[in-house]
Nucleic acid binder design. Structure first.
Length: 424
DNA sequence: TCTGGGGTCCTAGGACCC
DNA sequence: TCTGGGGTCCTAGGACCC
């Protein structure tokens, strides 16, 4: 069994560079939602010492003195580029598991070329067809493919492709990898392991697996087995249907009034419900939460409340009114709220929704038709052209995106134009 | 002054049942 | 004073991932 992991290098930054070559060779970061902090960094930015998750205000000095370029995140662009990369990868394998926006696992079994040669061909094709640089790691298990990918990325000698099987001294390599870098080992587990003198991938691999299972978890046990080359995490080529959909935002300013919170929650319900409907699903459970910033002066407060809907639905007006009722129950005046969110879970297929005695199938069909129309309009004319008045008309709940690039690939009016008479 | 957002899975413990 | 045992389901919270 040979599993490969293709992972795009600095994905968001690479997407920006694909359409704006002026960014190549420069220190660039892409900021999170609301321009909050750095979430993707070019190699040059990393070399400057810009850390992952560094808040935007701390970047100011880098921007002014070191020429750092900071961009707002452009999700429509990244989503489209992700599809292009995945479509390209899928030409090379029958079993592609899209693991995240910028990563995919796939099987390399049954190809005539050596795994390394095949991976090189894949890598150069993706670069040529999409402009996105990817690294490929190969191993007998997903966990080892992940580690191999890391090696492919961090050691320039390998030119973006590394096969664990081709490694002359795997123990030496594993001995150099900090346990916390292993897929599935987070800071908490790593700290506990350290207390037992397990500090590297090598020592975790050679730990007593029964003890690991007893002392920690079955997930940790699986990690140990995977490090030994025994697959516990199978390739899952078909994407499972989503189990939840959430929308949460920080406000960027403190909000005290219930009316304003209501607008925000209404807006988030609309967005999350749209995600649910986009997959042909309906929600049976909803949760609303609000948070008054513990970092601010004065007392902090946060609360969440869940509700089981009698009948699963994706109908925004119904969901909004329910959410607002929940919000009223947890709202306490006198706090400076900085964040709110909604979670939909227990999602079921729209087609198999069990109606109650009091629902008329005709009404439900009408509701669905209405939502379908609204979604279609918003898809064509841009997000939230049609929305509930309860979401407010002040546009106060939109994301802050002050340094946004164009949606080069998904909007006709934002296509890249090239002036052929001008030198680049 | 300004520190993201969207997911999944596991586990422990409570409620309840027989 | 002694106070079962086994099972299910649900929930909250933790941990981890990108």
């Amino acid at each position: 069994m040979r599993i490969a992991l293709a992972d795009c290098n600095n994905f968001y930054v690479s997407c920006e560079r694909a359409f704006n070559p002026a960014l190549i060779g420069k220190p660039v970061v892409v900021l999170s939602n609301n321009d909050g902090c750095a979430v993707s960094r070019s190699e040059e930015a990393k070399a400057l010492g810009v850390g992952m998750g560094v808040p935007a205000f701390q970047l100011k000095e880098f921007i002014e003195k070191k020429g750092l370029i900071a961009l707002s995140s452009n999700y429509p662009l990244y989503a489209d580029m992700s599809h292009r990369v995945m479509a390209t990868l899928s030409r090379f394998t029958s079993a592609l598991q899209v693991y995240s926006v910028d990563e995919a696992f796939f099987s390399l079994d049954g190809h005539p070329l050596s795994p390394t040669d095949y991976a090189r061909e894949i890598r150069s094709t993706v670069k040529r067809w999409t402009g996105i640089p990817v690294s490929v790691g190969i191993g007998p298990t997903k966990t080892l493919a992940k580690l191999a990918n890391r090696t492919a990325k961090t050691s320039p000698d390998y030119e973006g492709v590394f096969d664990f099987a081709a490694c002359p001294d795997p123990d030496e390599l594993l001995g150099r990898i900090d346990a916390v870098k292993i897929w599935g080992v987070g800071p908490r587990l790593a700290a506990s392991l350290r207390r037992h003198k397990i500090e590297t991938a090598l020592s975790l691999r050679d730990a007593d697996e029964r003890w690991i299972k007893r002392r920690f978890s079955s997930a940790a046990y699986q990690t140990v087995m995977e490090l030994r080359g025994i697959p516990c995490l199978p390739l899952q080529p078909t994407a499972p249907t989503r189990k939840s959909a959430v929308c949460t935002r920080s406000f960027g300013r403190p909000v005290e009034k219930l009316e304003e919170l209501k607008e925000a929650v209404s807006c988030y319900v609309s967005l999350a419900a749209q995600k649910v409907r986009a997959q042909g699903l309906a929600a049976r459970k909803m949760e609303v939460f609000i948070q008054a910033n513990p970092r601010h002066e004065g007392p902090s407060y946060s609360a969440s409340i869940g509700f089981r809907l009698g009948v699963a639905t994706g109908y925004t007006p119904r969901l909004v009114s329910q959410a607002l009722a929940l919000l009223e129950r947890i709202y306490k005046p006198g706090f400076a709220y900085v964040r709110a969110g909604v979670v939909f879970s227990d999602l079921v297929s729209e087609k198999s929704v069990q109606l109650s005695l009091f629902e008329s199938p005709e009404d439900v069909a009408k509701e669905r038709e209405l939502m379908k129309t609204v979604d279609a309009i918003n898809r064509r004319l841009g997000r939230e052209k049609v929305f509930l008045a309860s979401s407010g008309v002040g546009r106060g709940w939109k994301m802050k995106q002050e340094r946004l690039s164009r949606r080069y690939t998904t909007r006709w009016d934002e296509l890249l134009t090239v002036d052929v008479n001008k030198d680049l």
